[in-house]
């Protein structure tokens, strides 16, 4: 039996929930976890935002949140998906970017062309294997909505790049 839930304790529990598709980063690193509200009747409302509109991981993330809270005895949980303001890679934590890189995914680079620019690609993307920036875009679309496919021109290794999205 738990006493009245405390916001920072709940935040700490949720901070440990990992992204189901990139299990080295948490939903807090990603910026998917937006807020936690504790209502007068004791209900805990968790506010999350999708990375991409069709991201299939969102359902799984909601399940993981419920399980993590249940393990701590918190069962009265409401999960609210909030679309606005729209998620951007600017919400990615620095720690999260480092974890991505170690995992073999190039983290988002800030100097991306404006979304309205029709042609031209992002530059300065570093190969997570050898560190070279001599890399080339193979496809804007990768294994998940949030990633593009690149290849290193030095070590020749193909790799995923977490697209700069804003």
């Amino acid at each position: 039996m738990m006493t009245a839930p405390n916001r920072s304790a709940i935040w700490q529990i949720l901070e440990r929930v990992c992204d189901p598709e990139i299990p080295v980063i948490t939903i807090a690193d990603l910026g998917v976890l937006r807020d936690v509200l504790i209502h007068e009747d004791g209900e805990v409302e968790v506010i999350i935002t999708p990375t991409y509109s069709g991201c299939p991981a969102m359902n799984m993330i909601a399940v993981e949140i419920r399980l993590a809270l249940k393990a701590e005895g918190i069962e009265k949980v409401k999960i609210t998906t909030q679309l606005s303001p729209a998620w951007t890679t600017d919400w990615f934590s620095e720690e999260g970017k480092q974890k991505l890189k170690q995992y073999g995914i190039a983290p988002p680079v800030d100097a991306s062309p404006h979304v309205r620019q029709l042609f031209g690609q992002e530059t300065g993307i570093q190969c997570p294997q050898c560190g070279s920036t001599h890399t080339q875009l193979l496809s804007q679309f990768g294994s998940t909505s949030c990633k593009a496919l690149y290849q290193c021109q030095d070590c020749k290794e193909p790799f995923d790049y977490f697209k700069c999205h804003r």
Partner: peptide, 18 residues
């Protein structure tokens, strides 16, 4: 809110089709 969310995604679509 829906449009703001999808706008960023569609910027990749238009690049691809163009």
């Amino acid at each position: 809110a829906i449009a703001g969310k999808s706008f960023m995604e569609v910027s990749y679509h238009i690049k691809w089709s163009s």
